[in-house]
Design a protein around this nucleic acid. Structure first.
Length: 353
DNA sequence: AATACGGGGCA
DNA sequence: TGCCCAGTATT
């Protein structure tokens, strides 16, 4: 009978981690601020995607004071393309709180650090264990996958309350001597060995402690219910130029999807056949003359899809909307835009005037 | 408990 | 296509 042994599990996991861990930029520091930045960026985002963003971010905002004093547009520009932009705003709010009320020292208790904007149960445990060496659980998707197999936990990991089961489990088995390597070892194992599909069990350092492997259930775990389909929204998008070689751009609302990011004027299609050019007049105060059809664009978000038709043309009138600006090509490079708008802008630039 | 919130990579 | 990713805030 195979029986889980936390003593040998810890040793196998940590020895493997210390030997095989990838060299990642945030593993070269103990600065709680830099660990914090990395953990926020890594939320729902792959390591390879984060690396260049992290390096650039630390280069531009090397200290909490630098980030606290940054203006939001510059901050969002650094986050451009990374997604979940409220992470950036919440990070700055949290950092400002630490600068102002914690004397620029990242708190060392779960209660205090969890009160910071954008710091949930996972991030709190990650910072406490990695930066401060505290034996705190840090349960993310990797940890739930790995432990669901190792401990044969069949609870649905899509359900919120299931995370608590894994937090209790980690609290029970965590290595109090090196909680940083233990937590990061679990995540590293999930990332490179104990993968969602085709786990590499023959290379796994904790195979002897894996109950799922012992009973041949590793490919059936974790149990996770599926989420529902995304719905599609249709838009007409307009790249509008005036006679001063400026382009009309609009700042999105300060809450909701892509908050405070910049976009070209866009009008949702209620019915597919409708011509939205007259609406440009009403909603944006411009008289648009269509010249080029840039074609269809499609962009898939996690919960919805944008299907867009994009047109280029001129307007002779100035927009009066508070949320709109006429920007030159050089100025457009400075404002934060979501990827669908970047794709449209790139297509326009590559097409040439 | 469910939903909103980006974007990219991979089978 | 659909799933997954070092999740959190809001309702």
């Amino acid at each position: 009978m195979n029986e889980f042994n936390k003593i040998t599990f810890r040793k196998s996991l940590i020895d493997w981690y210390l030997e095989e861990k990838r060299n990642l930029p945030w593993r070269e520091t103990n600065d709680p601020y830099k660990i914090w930045v990395s953990e926020i960026m890594l939320q729902q985002t792959r390591v390879d995607t984060v690396i260049p963003y992290y390096n650039r971010f630390i280069d531009i905002f090397p200290t909490m004071e630098d980030l606290a004093n940054a203006n939001e547009e510059k901050l969002l520009k650094q986050w451009e393309g990374l997604g979940y932009y409220s992470r950036a705003r919440n990070l700055q709010a949290g950092v400002r709180e630490v600068v102002e009320t914690y004397n620029s020292i990242v708190p060392t208790t779960r209660n205090e650090i969890s009160s910071l904007k954008g710091v949930g149960p996972y991030t709190a445990g990650a910072i406490l264990s990695i930066a401060y060496g505290k034996p705190e659980h840090a349960v993310d998707g990797n940890v739930m996958r790995v432990l669901s197999r190792v401990l044969l936990i069949k609870e649905d990991i899509a359900k919120p309350k299931t995370r608590k089961i894994f937090e209790v489990a980690v609290t029970e088995i965590i290595d109090s001597q090196d909680p940083s390597s233990f937590n990061q070892g679990l995540m590293e194992l999930g990332a490179v060995i104990c993968t969602p599909t085709s786990p590499k069990c023959l290379l796994c350092p904790v195979r002897d402690n894996c109950t799922a492997y012992y009973v041949g259930e590793q490919n059936n775990l974790p149990v996770k219910t599926k989420n529902k389909k995304t719905k599609a929204l249709h838009y007409d998008i307009y790249v509008v130029q005036n006679d001063k070689k400026q382009f009309l751009m609009e700042k999105r609302a300060e809450t909701g999807l892509l908050a405070n990011m910049y976009q070209f004027p866009m009008i949702e299609l209620a019915t597919k056949e409708a011509d939205t050019i007259p609406l440009l007049d009403i909603r944006y105060g411009i008289h648009f003359t269509k010249e080029i059809d840039l074609g269809p664009f499609k962009h898939v978000f996690s919960h919805l899809t944008w299907e867009m038709n994009c047109f280029v043309g001129h307007s002779t009138e100035d927009s009066l909307l508070e949320t709109c600006k006429w920007l030159t090509i050089e100025e457009i490079k400075e404002v934060p835009m979501p990827v669908p708008m970047l794709k449209i802008w790139q297509a326009y630039i590559e097409r040439g005037n």
